[in-house]
Structure formats: C-alpha cells, structure tokens
Write a protein that binds this DNA or RNA. Structure first.
Lengths: 176, 176
DNA sequence: TTATCAAGTGAACAATCTGTCTAGCTTCCC
DNA sequence: GGGAAGCTAGACAGATTGTTCACTTGATAA
C-alpha cells in the first residue's frame, strides 16, 4: 500500500516522511509555549544537544511542517470584535478564480475556502461592530460574480484555533 | 461617544488605544515576513532605534495585539490533507458548555465557535483522508449532547488565513 | 558479518545579539 | 511653564548564534 520507500522519486513531495517523532512534537510544543526561546535554551529544556535542535528545526521548516514563526495578531485587540463566516454562491467563471482574488483584496476577509454543499465559497471575516459587518458584507456582495451570501456570526469561541493536540497526537500514529 | 480618555479606569481592557500606528504595522509586517529576525535587525530595517523596536514590541504584546510568536504548523504537512467545517445542533445544557469541552479533547478539532443561525456550533476539523474524516465525525457525534451534524469539506483554500492586510489597514483608520 | 549512512553528541571559534542602563531631545497636554 | 511619554544614541557584560570538527550510535543492506 505504501510505496514511499519503494519509489520515493515518484513522490517528491513525500520524500520525507510526513510524520514527526516525539522529539519534534516536544520541540513544537515548547516553542508554542515559549516562542521567544533560543535554540540553546530549547536544547537544555529538551535534554538534547544544541545541534540536534537546530537540525530538527531546519528539517521541520524544510518539510513545511513549520511554515513560519510569524507574530500572531489578534484582530479583537485591534478593535475587530466581530467574527463571521460568510458562505456564498458565485457565478462559475472559467479560469483562475477571479472571485477569490477580489475577496482577497478586502482586508477584513481573513480566509477563503471553496467548499462542497449548497454554497461555493466560505470565508471568514472580521468587523469592528455588527454595523461594520454590514459594510464588509456589502463589499463582498459587490464583488463581481457573487450571487448570494449567507452570514453566520461567531458569538463565542470556546476553542480558539490550535494545532498542538494534533501535533502531540501524530507521533503516536507514526506509520514509519 | 468615546469616553476612553475621560474615564480610562472604567475600561481597563481599553486603557491603551486599540489602534496601532504605521510603525507598529510595519514592524508586524516585517516580523511576519522574516520571523526569526532579532530586535536589532528590525531596528535597522525600520530605520529606528533598537530601544524603540523593543518598546513597541513589548507594548504590542502587553496590549494583546500580538498574542505570540508560536511556530505555525501546517496540518497538511503532517498528513492531514482534509479540512472540513462541521456545524452541529446540540442539546442546550446549563452551565459552562460541556459539549465544547468534549470537542476540545479531539485533536482533529482545530477550533470551535458558537454561532447564530440554525446550528449551534461550528468547528473546523482536519483528517488524513475522507475516510478518516468519517472517523473524526463519528467522534464528534459521539459527544454527549450533540444531536445532529452537518459537514462541509473545504476543497481548496484560495486565501489562507492571514491578518496582514488588516494590520496594514488599521493605521489608516486610526481614530486616536 | 561487515560496510555504509543518517543522526546525535560534545566541544570549540569568532561574531553577533540581548538585556539593561544612561542621558539628552522632542512632542503633546494640562 | 511643568510633566509625561516616546525616541535617539551610546555603553556594558554576558549570552547566543552559526559553523565546523571528530567521535559514537543505531539501522539498513550487501
């Protein structure tokens, strides 16, 4: 079933195992908890050599498991207290999706997905107030090709976005 | 209308202006682009003194605008290629939401929101394959209090989560 | 069994950065 | 004018970084 080891060159993306081991997971968890930690301090906390931490980090980044260490910005702290999910039907147009391109130009649109189901696109937007949300939605509706939208407001977020449990879980399912 | 300056003590959370200026935005953009940059290098790139960058950064973190510098992990790179949004109706139970607590115990559940509309909760989940998604959804359905679920698969993500345009936009709307 | 390779260890080097102070200057507000 | 806050510029010791070295270990394959 798994031909990665037999014909790795046929699967360049998967040249490296898509799994991480326990040390990787602990490293990610550590850096998530205390992101400003240096490599040296990490090596001390994890009980391994500095070179190991450095190599692991490089490998995680090279594989694309860790895509960056960007500052996490809270829209709420900037005054954008309202989060909403907007689904929409669009007029299907050939070629590279022009609707998504237009949506990407609206700063309040934080992400866009194409989806299965009745609607075609799902995007997450933020706004300063409910009234401000109307303004943002108006911008979305104005996008050429958008036929109909449907908004759902996120009242509360009992579980904010997190990946750590997943990261901690992966080593236990290690296939390789 | 804005009583922040008159009675700041009545609004402890908003003691600091919820706005950022151009330098803040440029600093965030710079760190987003090259996150491993040190404070000194930032000060050189931005053309300001090191102490300024340090102070700005400290303030951004203190205000909660920047919540962390955690490593950004890509679930896809870990083999979780399928993303789905699951909405659900739940049996309303008094007290601190026990359903969300249970959902939080499922590693594949990346975030949970309570929402307006027909459904009560919206959560983002990932899975290794479509078949694996069924396993995850089964776990969700098994949660006590979950009555019905509805899954939407994200086929593609033309605009991945990003906050930078918003950050760049805020200084232009600076109220203070 | 032996050869080979990938990975980790421990140590060393110079160059750089960090945390923390100082002092002086400007701007804004009462 | 006085005060507060923010920025600049410079200084210090101490810590960290990137890099390279030689050596050990474990797994794999011939």
């Amino acid at each position: 079933m798994n031909n990665l080891s037999s014909f790795p060159w046929q699967n360049p993306v998967n040249l490296y195992s898509m799994t991480i081991d326990d040390l990787d997971a602990r490293l990610i968890a550590l850096l998530t908890a205390e992101p400003r930690l240096g490599v040296l301090e990490c090596s001390r906390r994890l009980g391994v050599a500095r070179g190991t931490v450095q190599a692991r980090l490089d490998r995680l980044v090279a594989r694309g498991v860790v895509t960056g260490f960007g500052p996490d910005v809270s829209p709420a702290a900037l005054g954008y207290d309202v989060t909403a999910f907007v689904t929409m039907e669009i007029r299907q147009i050939a070629g590279h999706d022009p609707v998504a391109d237009r949506l990407a130009r609206i700063p309040e649109v934080l992400e866009v997905h194409t989806i299965t189901g009745d609607s075609d696109l799902l995007c997450r937007v933020v706004a300063r107030t409910n009234a401000d949300l109307q303004r943002v939605i108006d911008q979305i509706v104005d996008v050429h090709g958008v036929l109909r939208t449907n908004s759902i407001i996120a009242l509360d977020t009992p579980v904010p976005y997190r990946v750590l449990p997943l990261v901690a879980d992966v080593p236990r399912h290690g296939v390789r």
